[in-house]
Amino acid sequence: MDLALKIWRQAGPDTPGEFATYIVREVSEEASFLEMLDQLNEDLNNQGEEPIAFDHDCREGICGMCGVMINGDPHGPQSGTATCQLHMRKFKNGDTITVEPWRASAFPVIKDLVVDRSPFDRIIEAGGFISINTGAAPDANIISVPKEAADSAMNAAACIGCGACVAACPNSAANLFTAAKMQHLNLLPQGQPERWTRAVAMVETMEEYFGSCTNHGECEAACPKNISIDFIAWMNRDYVKAQFKNVAKASQ
């Protein structure tokens, strides 16, 4: 199929960007969206033009590097799919596809479709970890985990940190990311010792960079891992509880 691509071009963080239109011919329906961009970049290389910069790594939907707005949808029209796993059969011959980077104050454009998502790293550094002694591998199943907690924690842990939730949110809030990264630890026994300090630290770091939740649900719809906004509610609950728990702990 032949496609017209309207792609955001921006030379650097401090230069203004604009849309440029390119034609890609004979795109296979079996190509992924990123393979189609590769094809365009080969054409641009051959013509001596600057190829389009875009983030990508594993190309199997688990690393969280890729992600662009495709025709106004984060990761494109197919739900529960990262950009790398979106196939060109979702488009028709002759379509014009608009491709834009994630937009948020916290995610400034570095070049073309690449944005700086390092505020996510700041949130993880604040509390998205557990502190354990390293050494010999512990016995498997030495700590019992309720089945429901394990399932729910796994649903949250599916977050790949791509930033589609922020890109989708009208308030540029990162609540879905932060909630997923918090709750997959807070739901498990291993996460309990730091649960309440984690809740406060992660929320307050998140709020330095991102907006607030108004419960639109756009993030859930955009999430390539279909992470539920219920985790945001549970994060809110943990944040409130933490206020009391941390005061109580301070008196011990």
Binding site: A104, A168, Y209, A222
Partner: peptide, 25 residues
């Protein structure tokens, strides 16, 4: 705060609403 977080970085192309509704917006 949300204005600051969204900042001057609005989407230049139109975007779709997948889950929000008239009431929430």
């Amino acid at each position: 705060r949300n204005r600051v977080a969204r900042g001057s970085t609005r989407y230049r192309a139109s975007r779709n609403w997948a889950a929000s509704n008239y009431a929430s917006r």
